[in-house]
Write a protein that binds this DNA or RNA. Structure first.
Lengths: 333, 333
DNA sequence: AGGTGATATGAAAACGTTCCCAGATATGTG
DNA sequence: CACATATCTGGGAACGTTTTCATATCACCT
């Protein structure tokens, strides 16, 4: 593996000059540059990243923190973020952190060692140590998700609570009053969306029945199926279901269909996220769409300006959402 | 940001000794070690990765190369690989490479600079430069995908051709003879699966009709929908469809359903991959299941042994697949 | 007392860059 | 022609580790 010294020797110049052609500022005679370029070509030289990072005292890498198994929404935002990062020529480090406290701290430790330029967090972290560390070290951070705990970093997201309320209100407007909910574990966006559900019900003077709420353990379709089963066991009087995630909704619909119910004739279902799949299942899913492309772009744009301008930004950035009415909800007969 | 010198000073020892407690071989008096540990705790010291990598002459990072927008199958294998990598305490670098030649070479350039320990490739690369570079530099590489071009690296995959033939034979056994195909762009696994389709037809003495083959531009459901539309326009005599990907199949089913066809009564559809979704759409999708968990685990296991044992491995590793019969295919009436 | 091996520590080189400083050569200006 | 300024190049320190080598102390045995 060629290093800068060999290139310099081959081109008959000093390492300083070779370095100069790589970093372009300052003067290099055209003829010399040509000779060096040739030597680079010949040796296949590529600067050693570690050495560069050491003198620069920082990596040109931003880390993406994601959950253990990410859902379709997170997959999409990940793709967008990764592409944008590449656009700005950052390296992309992948950090997987499950929702277990211990795992989260292990993830943090890896981050510590890496001297990252910045971090984009795509799911809620529960350990306060994360924010504490990142903010004392002044590591630019952006959350492209709901910020559960208090962060010193900006969080880009929609108003989960309002959006959920809009979804539930949609059901109420269709005449439903017995509306069940499939939530996730009791924190993060799950609890915010559930709160929105409660608010919408309260506003319509509908009493909240604990038995018509069920908590799924993950956000997979399988969990949605399972959750729908539990819901059916503990209550049978609902005419509509609000699922806090499209995957959960799709899994639930599958269960209800298996039980012979017709959607939306016998039961209306709303989801949340508008993943690609939502418009391909039957019935097509009525759901809340997040401006995912914008969220991803904004996240790296913001992070990039934090890194380059050294200005610390914070606070929530709320983006608009829309209810997309498709085929899984109908007027109560 | 504390460095090793500060820790050494605080503990009243030399940097060598501090380094020793981090890398554990050789002797350090228990008392000294305790003092150093305390100093580490107090300063919050974490070794600088770049510096470490420089002296080690390699990173503790393996890169994952993925397509621009990855589908559900790739997402799943990515999750598995990332988790396993973490298990072996490698860092995970994410490298996105679209199928454009230029993009691919840009991706390769980033890889060159990073002195990766190893690389796991999750989709087919078309540029021979990739293999050439990796093999001359002796960078351990594993493909967890079909190896389109000839690689010096081992490729872990199923026999795409046979699997496709099994899927098509399943349709033939159900009495179908007019079987259309929805393929992708004409290379990589898409072409292998299409070849399997052709073989199965030939074996059953069914003439291959060019008009009953359509090529989707991506592997998304949207593309599947689009492809089904084009298929319907250029041919209307088929009673079954083989889609080379579950997403394509699901998109296609959506199109046919929109046109009032009942699946599987009016039309049978087989997919390929068995993504989670396959068992949640209606009708549930008949498809080919790849041993995804095993593929992911094997990939990092193999890579790890290549990295540590320095033994270069190569050749194809074929894993078994299974046809999962669900509800989207039926006997031709 | 002297030797031997195990235990414990420090000094300093090396890894591959970047960048500051100094010096050399060319180009212009009065 | 002298001097200032612009252009060009090299030397060497610095970045934060690991690792080799050398040396010091200790415990134990003859």
């Amino acid at each position: 593996m060629a290093n800068i010294k060999e290139v310099a020797k081959l081109a008959g110049v000093s390492v300083s000059t070779v370095s100069r052609v790589f970093n372009q500022q300052s003067y290099v005679k055209a003829e010399t540059r040509a000779r060096i370029l040739e030597a680079i070509e010949e040796t296949g030289y590529v600067p050693n990243r570690a050495a560069r990072e050491m003198v620069a005292k920082h990596a040109t890498t931003v880390g993406i923190v994601m959950p253990e198994t990410f859902n379709n929404f997170q997959r999409q935002i990940f793709s967008i973020v990764a592409r944008q990062l590449e656009e700005h020529s950052y390296h992309t480090g992948f950090y997987y952190a499950s929702t277990e406290a211990e795992e989260e701290m292990k993830c943090l430790n890896r981050i510590k060692a890496d001297r990252l330029d910045g971090i984009i967090i795509l799911h809620e972290l529960t350990q306060p140590g994360f924010n504490e560390y990142l903010s004392t070290r002044n590591i630019p951070t952006v959350l492209a998700t709901f910020s559960g705990q208090s962060w010193d970093a900006p969080a880009i997201h929609i108003s989960e609570e309002e959006a959920a309320a809009v979804a539930v209100r949609h059901l109420i407007n269709k005449g439903h009053r017995k509306i069940a909910a499939i939530a996730g574990r009791q924190f993060s966006f799950s609890s915010r969306r559930l709160a929105g559900y409660g608010n919408a019900l309260a506003l319509a003077n509908i009493a909240l029945d604990e038995r018509s709420i069920v908590h799924a353990s993950t956000y997979s379709m399988r969990s949605g199926y399972e959750a729908a089963r539990r819901l059916s066991e503990q209550s049978d009087s609902f005419t509509a279901v609000f699922a806090i995630t499209d995957e959960l909704a799709i899994g639930a619909i599958r269960y209800f269909q298996d039980r012979g119910l017709r959607i939306p004739e016998d039961l209306s279902v709303v989801g949340f996220d508008d993943i690609e799949l939502a418009s391909f299942v039957s019935p097509r899913l009525t759901t809340i769409a997040q401006p995912i492309e914008e969220m991803g772009n904004l996240a790296v744009e913001l992070l990039h300006s934090m890194i380059t301008d050294k200005e610390t930004s914070s606070g929530d950035i709320l983006l608009p959402f829309t209810l997309i009415e498709r085929e899984s909800t109908a007027q109560l007969r």
